[in-house]
Design a protein around this nucleic acid. Structure first.
Lengths: 339, 339
DNA sequence: AACGCTAATCTAAACGTTTCGATCGTGTCA
DNA sequence: TGACACGATCGAAACGTTTAGATTAGCGTT
């Protein structure tokens, strides 16, 4: 900018005024300055600007795994929304690891992001501490966090799983396996509650051996399914609380020589684009990813626009059961139909 | 830092020296300073540091669509690699749009990223111009770019498709439909070349009505497939040059009342995690996503480490044909076997 | 002609670091 | 004891902006 000012024989203040439109500058000078900018190929240094202005027009986004199709879609929507608003997005993946998450949030805060969207991991205490003393707005995505009281957008996970399990029960299933991630994050906790609630509402017993914990990955779903299917009294249906794990479930069913839905019914959380075209077409709980991403972005953009003191807003969206052909009616249902 | 210096009764220079380890500072002062840092909760301002140092320890990454599983995986790998190296990653999605891409690259350059990894879109001229006068290292990912001579990591697309089409020919297929994206990007161009080469090598004619252009999306694959299947002389196999479009192909096959592989064989470019478990299990060309992401990251990290003057390096990786059950042998093959 | 008002422009401080060169003790050696 | 080197510390400039406040010129009023 100094060079531009010299070339145009004006002060840097005038150049700044012209570029930002913060003051009127005469036509002659404007022209000289614009010419100089073109000649020199001047580009404003956003770092210096950020330093002076105290804002970077950049936000930080952390998700556990970008390869999980749910997060892929949400990241995509959020990225687009902020791109439209002229913000850049710094993306971090925590790999479901608590320490990684904290490091990355610190990394983002160090870089003076103007705001943060976090699909958190584990205990909220550290997150809370980190976020409290950096003074940036935070919106929590997909996962609520006990300690930290801030804008949040989540799904009504309990209700969504309740509906899915109830659907299975209505099909006649009585022994329904349930594969979940570690329950230290709210969606896993709430989904499990939905499972228990549905069984309870139907007057069915909860068999603890049918509840298996994994670590969100395909291999965990595989192992859990193997264990359940090798038992003497195997379930007639399996619900997987996340999407990568259901792939493991399907592989286990195949490897053990059974087939879905003939021998065992399967449903899972999170829809994916292939659900419709391959067999079996999986019955899933679809999250409104577009809405989730947009709402999260809007909440943060609103804070960034200056609305800092409004009380925390909690958005709870509804899931939708996508019924396809991976769950078959059992005898019990035929009876209830004929009854 | 000023506050820390005052609280510790030292100069800011000493605080900086301690924090960065750039000079020895006595134990007493070290202790006073560290105490002050804790008391105040001081965090170094990375923006100010970037301004002074001329480096942001941030890189920019642009991809066409993060929801395309190939890019999802590559982004994930790259993000991890730079995270390990202490860099942040700014992610942009160009939506296969030329203007968007240029805007986003400018956005990233404005923010003084130290380097750029670009899966470019369209013509390279503008990209070249933008990149030339910003003086940052660039690595091109997945797509070469005629004008710009820089580090590149791509697949041997022609060979990969040649192999896949040859596989279909060996199964006895003679009329093989080909669905591609617009050929102004190198992978689409090269893959098409592989298709033509394979037919030519087998002495088969190239039927132009069996080559359909789409815009990378599911709907384009759907339309293209519909057109081909409604013709009086429909192909016995279809190869889709990208992954989202093959979903459209499968939907079209279903909607038209045919089934794969009984009535029509299908193969496509890019593998995905579900390929193994649902029916039909799609025969695909798998890209070594892990290697692609790591190599791209390494090339850029090497430049960032100071190796600026080395000549551009071009890495060409090999695809792998994953043969599953979506392509069936035709009569012609039985003949050639019995011959 | 003196005055005040407005619009255009400029000067200089500030943002929070890093770093060069200067300063100041202290100990060593001749 | 004086010269000298060395280690520790500091002062101040610089990075490239923004912006408050000062300055200047032009113009209409009285």
């Amino acid at each position: 900018m100094l060079h531009v000012a010299e070339a145009a024989r004006v002060s840097v203040a005038t150049v700044s005024a012209l570029i930002n439109g913060t003051a009127t500058v005469s036509p002659e000078l404007s022209q000289r300055i614009e010419q100089a900018i073109r000649d020199i190929g001047y580009k404003r240094n956003a770092i210096a600007r950020s330093l002076k202005m105290g804002t970077t027009r950049t936000i930080g986004l952390t998700v556990p795994h970008i390869t999980n199709p749910f997060f892929t879609d949400v990241v995509s929507v959020i990225q687009q929304a902020f791109d439209r608003a002229g913000y850049a997005v710094m993306l971090c993946c925590t790999d479901e690891d608590l320490n990684t998450q904290d490091d990355q949030i610190r990394l983002l805060l160090d870089r003076m992001v103007d705001g943060l969207i976090v699909a958190r991991v584990g205990d909220g205490a550290i997150l809370k501490g980190i976020v409290d003393d950096a003074n940036v707005p935070v919106v929590l995505l997909d996962r609520i966090c006990e300690g930290v009281d801030t804008d949040t957008v989540v799904l009504d996970n309990q209700r969504a799983v309740f509906d899915a399990i109830t659907y299975l029960i209505n099909l006649g299933h009585r022994r329904i396996g349930y594969i979940t991630g570690t329950s230290d994050i709210s969606p896993m906790h709430d989904r499990m509650a939905g499972y228990r609630e549905a069984l309870h509402a139907a007057g069915l017993p909860i068999a603890e051996e049918l509840i298996r914990f994994g670590n969100f990955h395909e291999i965990d779903g595989y192992n859990a399914t193997m264990q359940m299917l090798s038992s003497h009294d195997r379930p007639s249906a399996i619900f997987s609380a996340n999407n990568p794990m259901v792939i493991g479930t399907m592989k286990a069913i195949r490897d053990i020589g059974l087939s879905c839905p003939e021998d065992i019914s399967v449903a899972c959380f999170d829809d994916f684009p292939w659900s419709d075209v391959f067999q079996p077409q999986l019955t899933t709980v679809a999250q409104p990813v577009q809405a989730i991403g947009e709402q999260a972005a809007n909440l943060l953009l609103d804070r960034l626009a200056g609305n800092r003191d409004a009380p925390p807003r909690k958005l709870v969206l509804k899931g939708r059961l996508m019924i396809r052909n991976s769950c078959r009616p059992l005898g019990a249902m035929a009876q209830s139909v004929s009854a």
